[in-house]
Design a protein around this nucleic acid. Sequence first.
DNA 1: CTGCATAGTTACAGACCGGTAACACCCTAG
DNA 2: CTAGGGTGTTACCGGTCTGTAACTATGCAG
Lengths: 196, 196
Amino acid sequence: MADGVVERSRPRDRILETARDMFHKHGIKGVGVDAITEAAGTNKMTLYRHFESKDELIVECLRANAAKAGAMWEAFEAEFPGDKLAQLHAWVRKAAVMLNADGRGCDMANAAAELTEPEHPARLVIKELKEAQRARLVTLCRDAGIGQAELLADTLSLLFEGARVSVQTVGNEGPSTQFVRMAEGLIVSFRGAAAV
Amino acid sequence: MADGVVERSRPRDRILETARDMFHKHGIKGVGVDAITEAAGTNKMTLYRHFESKDELIVECLRANAAKAGAMWEAFEAEFPGDKLAQLHAWVRKAAVMLNADGRGCDMANAAAELTEPEHPARLVIKELKEAQRARLVTLCRDAGIGQAELLADTLSLLFEGARVSVQTVGNEGPSTQFVRMAEGLIVSFRGAAAV
DNA sequence: CTGCATAGTTACAGACCGGTAACACCCTAG
DNA sequence: CTAGGGTGTTACCGGTCTGTAACTATGCAG
């Protein structure tokens, strides 16, 4: 729950999990490695035995986030096997839940805002992972029988991305309240259009 | 152009302008007050004579940004006096230009991502300024004779916000390339719907 | 019991951070 | 000429940051 989770698992896992949580809550530059290791119930030397630098830890956290997001997609497939349209609606509902989960936006987007050096290792994996997510949504739209699958997928992802930053700036009483309505409306109108 | 602009104006103005530029490029926590004053051709003592803290400087930079954005709206009115629909299309074009200007997103959104303390003074002005911008877009949509003005305004602003973070994460060859198409399509379809 | 990998502890290096004190300088208003 | 406000300079404070060194404690495999 709090920052001080010290379940008995391998130090590396505890560090990774704690770092993910703290980076998410306080931002990357807002958390020092000392604070992470203390909250993880270990110490700095152990961290540097498992990660060669803070930057590498950041990258691993981002990859872990992406893995968790990947599990989400598999859950959709498990819940609605083969029904791609139902999975698309599930994605919309899940997105809406995430909007109200906490006032923080997407970890990748936040990391990109903080890590401005063009050659920062995190920037490459952010791009890579975001592109993978986009491809996934495009595929889902296409398999759901939607004609302009790329356009719908891009529109939906821009809306979602925008809603997350909106929550972060004005809170969840702002434009983001309309997200589901917008998304569902788009799906309907794209379904109406002729498939290629 | 570069960080080292040292035009001869009052130190306070130079500091403000330089800080805006550097915060935008490198993020807030990525820039120290020493670096700002040096780039502004002055020194730390002078900064602290004009701003009581770095936090206050941040807030002033955000307000200056909002003022610049306000000037943009007045330019629309000047270019298409009374023609609100033309101004709305001008907003879309301007947004598209900003998307390709540089790979950095909205300064307010980036600041919100970095400054996570809930009581940080910048968070209040970010919310205040973002809400003002939203109100402005809603008014424009309404005055352009669009029925569901709030919904269109919110959709457009989420799309734009999302496009900005998309540029920051995957670059300007990603989903953001479709922004104008999406926005124009929305305006058309909202115009088609019956006005209240 | 021995040996070895893993983990914890303390201390430190070197840099940078925001912010302040004390003082010298210039320019302009009177 | 003089007084004073705005500015520049230097040095410093206490704190925090990433990263490392040297050493100790633990637990498990043979």
